[in-house]
Design a binder for these strands. Structure first.
Lengths: 95, 95
DNA sequence: ATTATATATGAATGTATGTTCATGTATTGA
DNA sequence: TCAATACATGAACATACATTCATATATAAT
């Protein structure tokens, strides 16, 4: 059995994937590094909402931001992110 | 880019994993088929809360219930469930 | 210096969600 | 038939969460 603190941490991780907007952000980043406005546009979100979500993903260390001038380029930080996304997608497509 | 309906469905899937109680239920079921009270006890939840969660997991086709007398034995229904759980756990342990 | 652009942040608000408590239903045993 | 057990369900409540709007900060351009 999983221990309580691990369950809580794991729940936090999966919560990152539990929202359609964040999944669209992740999906956009699967294509490669992008700045915030491009992410927002790809995902069909306001820049504010996008920024809020990116903060959350950053805090969970699922994405990183690289500042270049006044833009910030985000990218996926961890292979597990890719893998969870891929398996989840596989599940809903032919599950 | 992921399409809107897929994003919604994927979010729904990951939402199942986004709660510590449900993760404990899933963790209990990784050990094998269990009836509701055993699941509740393993997970440290009330039977009512457990039942509510199991209904959600059932609707998402992540678990199945096999009725035997007045007990219902639940089990994980899909390999993807195992795999998502495993990768997530791997991530938080050595990520 | 002023203005414009890119991103971040905080407060506010509506909505979703988890748990509890009370009750319902089905099955078993006396 | 009556009581007991195992599970399910609905309503209610409290909390968490996503988005919007307004505003702030930082960098660049004029």
């Amino acid at each position: 059995m999983i221990k309580d603190p691990d369950a809580a941490e794991l729940a936090e991780l999966f919560s990152a994937f539990s929202d359609a907007s964040r999944l669209k952000i992740i999906s956009a980043l699967v294509e490669g590094e992008k700045n915030v406005s491009d992410i927002a546009q790809s995902a069909g979100l306001s820049e504010s909402a996008t920024s809020h979500h990116l903060r959350g993903l950053r805090q969970l260390k699922l994405v990183r931001g690289r500042k270049e001038g006044r833009q910030v380029f985000y990218s996926l930080l961890d292979d597990h992110v890719h893998e969870l996304y891929r398996i989840g997608k596989e599940h809903i497509l032919h599950g």
